[in-house]
């Protein structure tokens, strides 16, 4: 029995190493399945909760065009949630269970959504910075070893890059506008810069799951590698906008051909992860409330489908 398991495990790893996609019906180690369910459902939850901070501004968007773009963007996020939940379902997880885990606090979602959106510039910052960071995290996932996840991510990434461009365009419009608008943009950047750097997760030395995930090719780059890439990509864009990145230690390093930057406040990071961010309670409450208030709607839909089925059976 043990040797057989080992052989399966070895065969599995050999497929991974050869970059062959793992599909739902293939044998896979329990830990691989669990890691993926955890990661994909966490990702789906992030899309769902991520609708809230931006959803906040749909009713206050400053023009009909912006309102329409923002609504379409938040709707895309609901769509991403939908295909990610479906991808997790191919691993045997149920949507009800995943949602129950979100609502009980057992499952996590991206901490960035526990920060409040306070001005219109935040719609720019969320698109430009938060979606920018998400893209860096997600593009490698288009090549992740699990087939359904990889395919879902191809679609997600296409839409995310559109989201990022619209965020940048909001920032650009603000920066080319009145002094008030420019100040709004700078104030947004000041609040979002550090939380965005935290989106890549703890430093490699403090990231216990990274090694195994890299080995299984669920993950392709370490947290610190992605964080560095992000800073190198974003600093020139901030300069182009005429905005100041709120980091006094930010400096170009010729030798490494990248920027040196200050230390992330990990105490804040862990605090928000533990539930002490500005909006942790509100975000979760909003989800739980939508779910609980929707219970009678879901029950009615099921009851009606059942009645219809019975009537058809009688008629036939």
């Amino acid at each position: 029995m043990e040797t057989l398991e080992l052989t399966q495990e070895e065969q599995f790893q050999a497929r991974i190493d050869a970059d062959v996609r793992i599909e739902p019906k293939d044998w896979m180690p329990d830990a691989y399945r669990k890691t993926l369910i955890r990661q994909i459902s966490q990702h789906a939850h992030s899309e769902l909760v991520g609708m809230l901070p931006e959803g906040n501004w749909i009713t206050r968007a400053p023009s009909l065009k912006r309102k329409s773009i923002l609504l379409a963007k938040v709707q895309d996020e609901a769509g991403h949630g939908l295909y990610l939940y479906s991808a997790a379902e191919t691993l045997g997880a149920s949507r009800d269970q995943m949602l129950a885990d979100l609502h009980s606090g057992k499952a996590k979602y991206s901490s960035i959504f526990n920060y409040p959106t306070l001005s219109w510039a935040d719609m720019g910052c969320v698109g430009w910075l938060v979606d920018g960071a998400a893209i860096l995290n997600q593009v490698p996932l288009c090549r992740t070893s699990y087939g359904p996840y990889a395919r879902a991510m191809v679609r997600v990434c296409k839409e995310e890059s559109f989201h990022q461009r619209q965020g940048f365009e909001i920032m650009q419009t603000l920066c080319e506008g009145s002094p008030e608008q420019k100040a709004m943009a700078q104030e947004g950047l000041n609040r979002w810069w550090w939380p965005t750097l935290m989106m890549f997760g703890p430093a490699d030395a403090d990231s216990p799951n990274t090694a195994q995930s890299m080995n299984w090719r669920i993950k392709r780059f370490t947290n610190d590698e992605l964080r560095q890439k992000f800073v190198d990509m974003m600093v020139p864009q901030a300069e182009f906008l005429g905005l100041t990145v709120p980091d006094p230690n930010l400096k170009w390093n010729e030798a490494k051909q990248g920027y040196d930057f200050g230390d992330v406040d990990w105490e804040e990071f862990w605090n928000v992860v533990k539930g002490n961010g500005m909006c942790n309670k509100e975000r979760l409450q909003a989800r739980v409330q939508a779910h609980e208030e929707g219970a009678w709607v879901r029950e009615a839909a099921l009851a009606h489908a059942e009645k219809r089925k019975q009537r058809e059976a009688v008629a036939a």
């Binding site: 959803g55 709707q75 609901a78 939908l82």
Partner: peptide, 11 residues
């Protein structure tokens, strides 16, 4: 948006 009773109906 973000508060629908079922994700599909939110969409």
């Amino acid at each position: 948006c973000g508060h629908g009773p079922i994700l599909e109906q939110d969409l």
